[in-house]
Write a protein that binds this DNA or RNA. Structure first.
Length: 154
DNA sequence: GCCAACGTTGGC
DNA sequence: GCCAACGTTGGC
């Protein structure tokens, strides 16, 4: 069992969007970063647990929980010329980009903001990529200890 | 293989 | 809207 954090802009696809999808499930498309892709493709496993993080908004932070409900498969939006995520260099016979499916589990009882987590960067959350300066990864691993600590703040 | 230019992310 | 940080691209 692995633990993850995945970022999305609430205006584009927020946790309420996921909640309202059929089966409360959606594919996590549009990842166009190799490091993030490798983690999805090589390490994410069915039923892994995931924090849903809202980025680029008034109060960035963790807003809910999801589970991985389908392991990595080719991100078909890369093949679609009409998609924002179109990448002509991704060949259907040799896909460059992958995605997983995620399923909504629950909202946190309250949002746990980045601002609230920052003071723990030198303590319980030391080494957590979320708190590393300049971090831009949209998908990052969490240790079980970090996961438990953050949920404990709820 | 280096590295400057460029584009993107994402907090503020 | 600004801008720091970082990844990618492409000329050489």
């Amino acid at each position: 069992m692995n633990y993850w954090l995945m970022k999305s802009e609430p205006e584009v696809f927020g946790i309420d969007h996921l909640l309202n999808m059929p089966q409360r499930t959606e594919h996590w498309d549009g990842v166009r970063n190799y490091q993030a892709r490798n983690m999805m493709r090589d390490q994410m496993r069915l039923n892994d647990r995931v924090f849903f993080y809202h980025s680029n908004c008034a109060e960035p932070g963790i807003v809910g929980l999801m589970r991985v409900s389908r392991e990595a498969y080719p991100d078909f939006t890369a093949f679609d010329p009409n998609s924002n995520y179109h990448d002509p260099k991704s060949d259907p016979d040799q896909p460059r980009w992958y995605m997983v499916d995620v399923t909504y589990e629950r909202h946190l009882k309250r949002n746990i903001s980045l601002r609230e987590l920052k003071p723990y960067a030198d303590g319980p959350l030391a080494g957590c990529p979320l708190l590393r300066k300049g971090n831009r990864l949209s998908i990052m691993p969490m240790s079980p200890e970090q996961w438990d600590f953050i949920l404990g703040l709820e």
